[in-house]
Computed example of a mutant assay.
Amino acid sequence: MPATDLDLLTEAAIEAGRIARRYWREDPQVWDKGGDDPVSEADLAVDTYLKTELLRARPDYGWVSEETEDDPARLAASRVFIVDPIDGTRAFVAGEPTWAHSLAVAENGRVTAACVYLPVRDKLYCAAVDSGATLNGTPLRASTSDDLDRATVLTPRVTMQDRFWKRGVPTFERHFRPSLAYRLALVGEGRFDAMLTLRPAWEWDIAAGALIATEAGAKVTDRHGSALTFNSVARQTAGVVTAASALHPRIIDALA
């Protein structure tokens, strides 16, 4: 049995990648969960594997997953797994390479171990609390930018509307990736200065990436600048703002 939670998540993420790739570009069966929210047979297969193996190793942990019906018993657990079997299902179904497995452990609301794994791109991001973050074993360091108007920012197109900004939309350079977990990890990697999502964010999309970005030196909060907590009743946060530590307060100040 893996000695640490991070070891356990890492092994599970790699095996999840093997399972998912059996379905990728193989015309997997897909259903609509409602509201144009697809789920594929690969999502379900990975979810089943992760729930079985992770809870076998840590039977006293709670469970939060996009593809598992919520069990309120998790609220009584001091430690929980927070998992998105495939983050970026639309990209996965379309045969695109940018989708990820997002795996985290939270203890009393705080993420303590995390992996974001992109099997097709061969990118394994890992972090443990107070131990730093890595990409394929190489330590990560977030950007040091403090100029919002010149920043590179990962965010959906809808963010570029005046109603979200006090003084009009800044002139930052907008980019996008389909996986929210990957966007967070990319800020930790230092490839982008910030990422924003202003609508409510599901915990399984952000838990792992939030720790990776934090351990790499970025600041991560909700859209109001408040610290994120996990294993909440609603399993959602009030958006996410992740940025270089000097840039983060400038974004919070600029948002309406």
Rank of each mutant, 00 (worst) to 15 (best):
W204M: 11
F192R: 10
V240F: 14
G217E: 08
A218E: 01
E215C: 07
A216D: 01
Y182N: 13
T197I: 11
I206V: 07
A244I: 02
E215M: 14
A244W: 04
A234W: 04
P200C: 05
Q236N: 06
R183S: 15
R191N: 14
A194T: 03
A194P: 00
S245K: 06
I206W: 06
L211S: 01
G225V: 05
W204C: 12
W202A: 15
R223Y: 11
W204V: 06
G239P: 04
A208N: 05
V220S: 09
A238W: 13
Q236R: 07
G217N: 02
A194I: 03
A213Y: 00
T214N: 09
E215H: 11
W202G: 15
S245N: 06
L196A: 00
V220R: 02
T242V: 12
V241Y: 00
S232R: 10
L211Q: 00
V187E: 14
A201G: 06
N231A: 07
T229C: 13
S226H: 12
D193G: 07
A185N: 13
A194C: 06
V220P: 13
S226A: 13
Q236E: 08
A207P: 00
G217K: 11
G190C: 13
G225E: 08
G190Q: 11
F230Y: 11
L228G: 03
N231C: 06
G190Y: 15
A210V: 03
D222E: 10
L186P: 08
A208V: 02
D222G: 00
D222A: 08
N231V: 03
Q236W: 00
T221E: 06
V240L: 06
R223G: 00
R199D: 13
Q236T: 03
M195N: 08
F192I: 08
R199Y: 11
A216C: 02
G209K: 01
S232T: 02
H224M: 08
R183P: 10
A210G: 12
R223F: 14
V220A: 09
E215G: 01
P200H: 04
L247G: 11
G188S: 15
R191F: 11
D205S: 10
T229W: 12
R223Q: 13
G239I: 10
D222V: 07
L198D: 05
G190A: 15
I212G: 03
A227D: 12
I212R: 02
A216M: 10
L198F: 09
N231T: 04
A210K: 02
G190L: 12
L186N: 07
E189G: 15
V241D: 02
